[in-house]
Measured scan of single mutants.
Amino acid sequence: TFELKGKVGKVVKIAEDHYLVEVEGDKWIAYSDEKLSLGDRVMVVDVDGLKLKAKRIP
């Protein structure tokens, strides 16, 4: 999973306390310091076990 750092994905679902992000065809649980919206493009900035930390990108 460490190779996911720096990869770009898309928010495909918003849950109460996390997001579901699709990166290279796989879906991952993600969290972010900022509020994300459905369809936002994100970059993986860190990997915490099986969770990704994501940041919105333009």
Rank of each mutant, 00 (worst) to 15 (best):
D17M: 10
Y19M: 08
Y19P: 01
A30R: 00
Y19I: 06
S32V: 11
K10P: 05
D46I: 02
K35H: 09
V11Q: 00
K35V: 12
I14G: 04
E22H: 07
K10T: 11
K5E: 15
T1Q: 15
V47G: 04
F2P: 15
G9C: 07
L20E: 08
K55M: 09
I14L: 14
L20S: 07
Y31F: 11
G6S: 02
G9F: 06
D17K: 09
K13S: 11
G49A: 06
K7F: 02
V21T: 03
V21M: 11
E22V: 13
R41L: 13
G6N: 04
D26M: 15
L52G: 01
D40S: 06
I57S: 05
G9M: 07
A30G: 11
W28R: 02
G49K: 05
L36G: 00
K51T: 13
I29W: 12
G6F: 03
K55V: 08
K35E: 11
K53N: 04
L52F: 03
V21C: 05
V8C: 14
G39N: 13
G9R: 00
K10M: 12
G6W: 03
L20D: 06
K7L: 05
A54R: 01
G6H: 02
K10G: 07
E34H: 08
A54C: 15
K53C: 04
E16C: 11
G6D: 09
V12Y: 09
V21I: 15
V21F: 02
E24N: 06
A15P: 03
L20N: 05
K13T: 10
V45Q: 04
E24W: 04
H18P: 00
T1V: 14
K35D: 09
W28H: 06
A15Y: 13
D33E: 10
P58V: 10
K53W: 10
V11E: 00
V8Y: 08
K7R: 05
D17G: 12
E16M: 13
I29T: 10
G25K: 06
W28T: 02
T1I: 15
S32G: 04
F2V: 15
V21E: 00
F2G: 15
D46G: 06
V12P: 00
V12H: 05
K35N: 10
K55C: 09
V11P: 00
G49E: 07
D48G: 02
K35R: 14
E22C: 10
G9I: 11
E3Y: 06
D46C: 04
